[in-house]
Design a protein around this nucleic acid. Structure first.
Lengths: 368, 368
DNA sequence: GAACGATGGTAAATTGTTTAACCATCATGT
DNA sequence: ACATGATGGTTAAACAATTTACCATCGTTC
């Protein structure tokens, strides 16, 4: 998939295992034994391991043969110690417990882990609780040489630790989030574009009274959705709280409550747009519970296209966000940055509308 | 929480940062500089770091002061290289992509990460795909000294790699799973007990026609549920497939399909017991979709008590499994095993019934 | 006062790689 | 014939800790 020569020391499995890479006396075999048996220096072996082109094909083969014979595997700690890199990526997640349980994070995390593995890197997980920052674990990660770089997933604006890392010159990337007052590498889905598509779709279906359930406005991507919504509806652009939008806290429960609030404020609402699928599902649940028919009485649109949305009845119309790819690309870009590639990274991946069953033409406006 | 002196080298943050642990010339400060400035040997500093009681309180303080002044942080790779331990745990998950999206794994994983952190360990994530085994990454994890031990979460019976690890003498623990033909440390919830409670509850409510939606019979914990179910209902103990139980594949979709199958086979069913909550939710969804009233027409019981179950309508009666604790305890036991504690580990954590709204007294049997 | 064991510390070896600097050897251009 | 530049390696010094002997000192005990 990528012609990337970035798995230096992965050597294919030897045919005859001789006890898991130990020599006769039971001691682990090291680079020295290989060098000895192949009648070369350890430097040469190291260069073979790292595919240094300086080495002739002939000697390369000779060394490789011995490596296979002795089932030699380089010690990662030693490699990390003497080389500049640990080949370990950190993934920072807030409140891991609930984050990991979310399909959203599952996709992103898988993308990161898979791509990192493909590039010869491992991934370490960190649960970022307030205590984590307070004890300065985030810099410790770098200063103690645990990792070469970190992926930050799911943080809201007020995370000073990210700024600190960037300032110190450590490699960090924001995964599917942006921070407008901070220049940090990031890979995000096109939330703005997605929101536009939703609004266009709803408009075409004749919906003029639309409510928005957004996640925390501390999250820049949610603000984008709010902005687009405000531009398109003319409601909510101002300073104070607007009648047409309610915070759904990113959760199903919150989405349900927000839907209740919206419908109470504006009973003539014909459509609800939610900033993520969980909130949309909550709204759907609430509406059905209230005896409303979706989509006949109320159209609902989500955001993210988590797997579950296709299963629920009616299947949810939503915006597909390529979260797995976001994770994968983040890992790629982070690794490049680690390897010294400079220049700001700012990738925006396209989103698209997935039209399913939870949307339809607006019901005629109630006679007033 | 634990009086465990197992975070040797975490030193509290220095007051005056002098540039992130670098000396005047911009070079990272090492144990040598500390030793020099404190007028002791590097061995002494190392011993202070590792809380070796051999060191006098007076010198300990002197060294500590210098450590704080210079903002020194020991290099983890070097520590790992020269000591016997990496202080890294691996977590092996099958098909990470979907696994992580599951609240089940979220809880377990959080438990592992939190407890590991508390014990001064980091956690590495591995996505176990067929290729992972084929390229023998599982042994590489140990032989290349990536990890000291691994937690295996969510694997079915036929995972030869676990046996191999155990045979080679590597530290591994099965998290919430058991393998009856393999003696490996494990920490599990009491599935048998949970199933008994469910059956007792249903019996008391007067349900005599109960169907079971189980997960893959390749998973020992599901087999336990199946066995208890068979004992209590007298159905399904034999060899061939029984009318009263269907495989729900652990998914919502599968649960829905299984419910359809069960109800078609036995229209007089008054209750369905599912081996996990997702399948139960699928069954619930199907039943409601068919116009059945839950719990009036059909009682449904799940297993695991994932957060979502409390939110759905009707809220699901289920068995609470302490998954976070399972993860945490697994990390504990694994670390103990790594440190040389021998003897098989076999912890069974109690489960309990959470009675919510999806169960009620059985509807009267249809007049035949 | 000599022998002895504890106490608190040190010097030096060890861990297993990478890498910078150096060095033959050989083909090439002048 | 000779300086020149690649080519393909080697030597030895990092890398940054831990750990194993070993050692001096001191307080006891007989």
């Amino acid at each position: 998939m990528d012609g990337d020569a970035s798995q230096p020391d992965r050597v294919s499995r030897p045919s005859g295992r001789s006890g898991g890479g130990r020599d006769g006396s039971g001691k682990r075999v090291g680079i020295r034994e290989i060098a000895q048996r192949a009648e070369v220096s350890t430097a040469t072996v190291s260069m073979v391991l790292n595919q240094n082109p300086k080495i002739t094909e002939a000697t390369r083969q000779r060394v490789l043969r011995v490596i296979h014979e002795l089932d030699y595997r380089p010690n990662r700690q030693a490699q990390a110690l003497s080389s500049k890199y640990t080949r370990m990526l950190g993934v920072l997640l807030p409140t891991l417990r609930h984050a990991v349980a979310d399909p959203y994070f599952g996709e992103v995390l898988s993308g990161i882990v898979d791509r990192a593995a493909k590039r010869g890197h491992k991934v370490m997980l960190e649960n970022v609780k307030p205590d984590f920052i307070k004890t300065r674990q985030h810099v410790e990660l770098f200063e103690r040489r645990y990792v070469d770089g970190v992926c930050c997933v799911g943080f809201a604006d007020r995370v000073p630790f990210l700024r600190e890392l960037v300032d110190e010159g450590y490699a960090a990337i924001a995964v599917n989030s942006v921070f407008d007052d901070l220049e940090v590498d990031h890979v995000v889905c096109d939330y703005r574009g997605g929101a536009e598509q939703v609004m266009t779709c709803l408009t075409q279906l004749g919906h003029s009274q639309v409510g928005l359930i957004h996640g925390s406005p501390d999250v820049a991507t949610q603000r984008m959705v709010m902005e687009v919504f405000a531009e398109r509806t003319g409601c909510g652009g101002g300073e104070g709280p607007a009648a047409c939008m309610v915070d759904g806290l990113f959760t199903e429960r919150g989405g349900a409550d927000a839907a209740a609030e919206l419908l109470q404020r504006q009973p003539d609402l014909t459509a609800i747009f939610a900033g993520n699928d969980k909130m949309a599902l909550g709204a759907l649940h609430y509406a059905q519970h209230q005896g409303m028919r979706v989509p006949d009485d109320l159209s609902i649109v989500g955001f993210d296209d988590i797997p579950h949305t296709a299963f629920v009845t009616p299947a949810l119309t939503t915006i597909h966000t390529p979260l797995y790819e976001v994770g994968a690309l983040s890992a790629d870009r982070l690794i490049e940055r680690i390897r010294g590639k400079t220049g700001p990274v700012s990738e925006v991946l396209p989103t698209h509308l997935v039209l399913r069953e939870s949307t339809s033409i607006a019901r005629p406006a109630r006679a007033s």
